[in-house]
């Protein structure tokens, strides 16, 4: 579906809403920030990407840095992130988003730069770039979406796939003796002196969404103060490739993902984890 058809479809829904006359000021409780475009997202129902995009967009809008922010999209489900953020963006090669972000930040040090990367992108093919970007203490924000699976290519095993977890390339469950262990890359990079702030969040409950947004806001503030690299992991779900309903996937996330990837700060400006 191209941009034009999507916008037409959007207009259609707008017309329905208008007919029902509920679009009145007193009913307004929630607005789309100007940092998001009108293009409907392609993400599956219940997927965490949409919420993650939104909180980043809200943070940029609230800080008033839309004109000064450049984002880098990865290869993966969020490859089209540049369609949704109403800011200048670059779509990087698989795994290289943090290198591209480094290039941008180094020649435009006064701008805000962030990369948005999935687990395959950041913690498998791009592990080298991730670690070295963090180790150099590049003054950027890396948002790391961890759903334990390759989404765009159709549910293959990711570096973060849990032990025993089934995927199309671990059809009998991840056998750690054969396939190795899930990589807790945020714990790993939190040990690097170049990293100023590393935290693990989720967007599965309203409270967690608020905390994740706060982490993004803090990261941009630290970037303004030139504090170094900020790393925000967002543990999320993948209903389609986990083969669950959105509700089931959220429950599974709480019962399986979060015990392995516990939420909280791994490195804070005070130098300590939570």
């Amino acid at each position: 579906m191209n941009e034009k058809t999507m916008l037409e479809e959007n207009k259609h829904f707008e017309e329905i809403i208008a007919e029902e006359s509920i679009c009145t000021n007193e009913n307004l409780v929630y607005e789309k920030p100007e940092t998001l475009t009108d293009i409907p997202m392609h993400y599956c129902p219940g997927c965490g990407h949409g919420v993650a995009h939104r909180i980043i967009a809200e943070a940029i809008a609230e800080l008033g840095i839309q004109e000064d922010t450049i984002g880098v999209a990865p290869v993966g489900c969020s490859v089209f992130a540049y369609n949704y953020f109403n800011i200048d963006m670059t779509e990087a090669a698989h795994g290289r988003a943090s290198a591209a972000a480094t290039g941008i930040k180094r020649v435009l040090p006064e701008k805000y730069v962030f990369s948005y990367q999935g687990d395959g992108d950041l913690a498998a093919i791009g592990t080298g770039e991730t670690i070295h970007t963090c180790n150099r203490g590049e003054n950027i924000l890396i948002v790391f979406i961890n759903n334990g699976i390759y989404g765009m290519t159709g549910g293959q095993m990711a570096p973060t796939t849990l032990p025993g977890m089934k995927s199309t390339t671990s059809p009998f469950g991840r056998d750690v003796a054969m396939m190795g262990y899930p990589l807790k890359i945020t714990d790993l990079i939190a040990t690097l002196p170049g990293v100023y702030y590393a935290t693990r969040c989720a967007v599965n409950t309203p409270n967690n969404v608020r905390k994740a947004k706060k982490a993004i806001l803090n990261s941009f503030k630290y970037q303004k103060e030139k504090k170094g690299l900020c790393f925000v992991e967002i543990v999320t779900n993948c209903p389609s490739n986990w083969k669950m309903t959105p509700l089931e996937s959220n429950k599974w996330l709480e019962e399986n993902m979060l015990p392995y990837y516990p939420l909280g700060d791994l490195k804070t400006p005070n130098g300590k984890g939570e």
């Binding site: 670059t90 290198a99 180094r106």
Partner: peptide, 8 residues
């Protein structure tokens, strides 16, 4: 890839 970002 740094060149890719910076050249952009």
């Amino acid at each position: 890839n740094m060149i890719y970002g910076a050249a952009g």
